[in-house]
Design a protein around this nucleic acid. Structure first.
Lengths: 211, 211
DNA sequence: TCCATAATGTGAGTAACCCTCACATTTGCA
DNA sequence: TGCAAATGTGAGGGTTACTCACATTATGGA
């Protein structure tokens, strides 16, 4: 019913028990390592909680004393990777002084972030949303391609001199990011969502006009 | 192991049996209607296959003769909504003749598409990926906000005269769409993915330079 | 009309897996 | 040393997607 799901009522509890003792903290780390390895090997969907416990050398009950559910493990891993990426962003942007500096820094920042994605199967898996149906992703991808083709056709009419492959790519990106923008928009409160969609339109139109 | 998951080896089988008889085709429609209603009411995660069968007035076995698994129902619905959106895009772009026309058409197109999202709980649900953990989405959202804040701080330094709220929003959007771009990039073959990331950087830098 | 064959329908049952809970063991501390 | 709190255990409960052996219905030719 509610159009905008509020942005998390409480900070989600990641660990059930605050690990006070030394051994506990080591166990949490061990669990995360094992989970990481399993996700890298077979994906988070195929990762079994029983397998995590077994590989970590603890009982299933013990596992659930540290992580309230399977999602909590994935969220913890996601948060760690996010923190890692954030550090890299912060470092790159630290001493940007002018637009030229921004151009260089932003380019490198994105390259590094992208590199992280490419190198880490665990990030890739979690980023796609745990258990997200692969077939559904393919449907989305195809939709972006079809929509992109529609846009590309028009852009080619408007800019017959432009590089065709680049227009195709740009149109595909624009339409795919349009969907991403809307996903983002409906995840925040309505007024902010509307403003984000406006910002998106603004950015894309500038891109299309400048070629 | 493989860095780029190939874009679907076969076109995913949507319906198991080709419904040749009249009754069969009616059943498929009825199943989709019932599924839609259930998703709208409680979300695709809470939708039970047994419930779909019951509400459609058929047996669970019959349901599985038309849809090989739960995801197939969601994929079919997603494809239908995509087709609907595509029609609207095609119609809006049909007689765009110049950049000014594009400005108007694109703005309306996005508004309509966004309106579809806002109005249809089923699209919203499916678009978030079936079963995707809500907590995980919140983690992603928070990451976008934190990264956006880092970028916004720099942009404010570079453009002290610009509207602060707009810079905040723009930075949030840029960083969030950066993640979307990378998700897209790792869904396609490597060379295309790399090019998409370059296009993204290009578009964002133009935006940042133009303010 | 009647029957053989194919198409379609049925639902109890299976398998898989997340998570709980009642009880055992260990640790920290006075 | 002894007690309370913290931590550990794993068999089992409960849910749910999906199967399969068999029943029912439709089709098309003799």
């Amino acid at each position: 019913m509610e159009p905008t799901p509020a942005p998390a009522e409480d900070t989600p509890t990641i660990t059930r028990r605050a690990p006070t003792q030394q051994r506990s903290r080591e166990r949490v780390e061990r669990i995360l390592e094992v989970a990481s390895a399993l996700i890298a090997a077979t994906g988070s969907d195929a990762m079994r909680m029983s397998e995590v416990a077994e590989n970590a050398g603890i009982s299933i009950g013990s596992l659930y004393q540290y992580f309230p559910d399977k999602g909590a493990i994935l969220r913890t891993l996601a948060e760690r990777y996010n923190a890692q990426g954030r550090e890299c962003i912060e470092a790159e942007l630290a001493d940007v002084r002018d637009l030229e500096g921004m151009r260089v820094a932003f380019g490198r920042l994105i390259d590094i972030y992208y590199g992280l994605f490419l190198a880490e199967p665990v990030i890739r898996d979690i980023w796609f949303g745990m258990q997200a149906d692969k077939g559904l992703r393919d449907v989305e991808l195809e939709s972006g391609r079809l929509n992109g083709a529609l846009l590309a056709a028009v852009l080619k009419r408007l800019r017959p001199d432009a590089d065709e492959a680049e227009l195709d790519r740009s149109a595909f990106l624009i339409m795919s990011l349009g969907e991403s923008t809307m996903r983002l928009a409906i995840s925040v409160e309505r007024a902010e969502g509307d403003a984000l969609v406006e910002s998106y339109k603004h950015m894309v139109l500038r891109e299309m006009e400048a070629g």
